[in-house]
């Protein structure tokens, strides 16, 4: 315990005077003597490293940094333009979508502006469904739309064979 306290005190001392009790303890403790010698070595080495001259700025340090910052500013402006353009396009797209939704909601579900609904066509009977919904081959429709028993021929398959 005393060893630990003595070592901590020596570590935190810096350039201050070693307290008497620490000096007495170290003098009587071989382990702390070895520790103090190693710590002196390390501390002296650290001081030598601290005294080493720091390399000065190379010529053009400030100019290079200024160029880098200019690049950053230009990049920022470009990215700002991009986001502005993207934002504008997003707003237009949203407006178009909102308008389409509004129109869909406002238009009546039937009437002169809109054809009969599927439900209405089904309610009208099978002929109405076939005739009303098949604008591709209106002339080729058989008189009786119900196929003969055992026949799988469809109006479309006749056209393909031709």
């Amino acid at each position: 315990m005393r060893c630990e306290r003595a070592r901590e005190t020596l570590e935190d001392l810096g350039r201050a005077e070693v307290p008497a009790w620490v000096r007495e303890h170290v003098a009587s403790c071989a382990a702390c003597q070895a520790w103090a010698r190693d710590w002196r070595l390390i501390r002296a080495g650290l001081r030598l490293l601290a005294r080493e001259p720091v390399p000065g700025a190379s010529p053009g340090f400030a100019a290079r940094l200024a160029r880098k910052l200019e690049g950053l500013a230009a990049e920022g402006a470009r990215s700002g333009e991009f986001w502005e353009r993207a934002g504008r396009q997003f707003v237009y797209a949203t407006l178009v979508l909102a308008l389409a939704t509004l129109l869909a909601l406002l238009l009546p579900s039937s009437g002169p502006l809109r054809g009969p609904t599927t439900a209405e066509l089904y309610a009208a009977g099978p002929e109405a469904v076939t005739l009303g919904n098949d604008p591709i081959f209106p002339d080729e429709l058989p008189a009786n739309p119900t196929p003969a028993a055992g026949s799988l021929a469809l109006p479309g398959s006749e056209t393909n064979q031709r």
């Binding site: 190693d38 070595l41 390390i42 002296a44 080495g45 030598l48 490293l49």
Partner: peptide
């Protein structure tokens, strides 16, 4: 380190390398 004196120049170099 034991004599608690200043380190000679060659010792300083060795010490500097060691701590580095």
């Amino acid at each position: 380190a034991e004599r608690q004196a200043d380190f000679a120049v060659d010792e300083q170099i060795a010490l500097r390398d060691l701590v580095e």
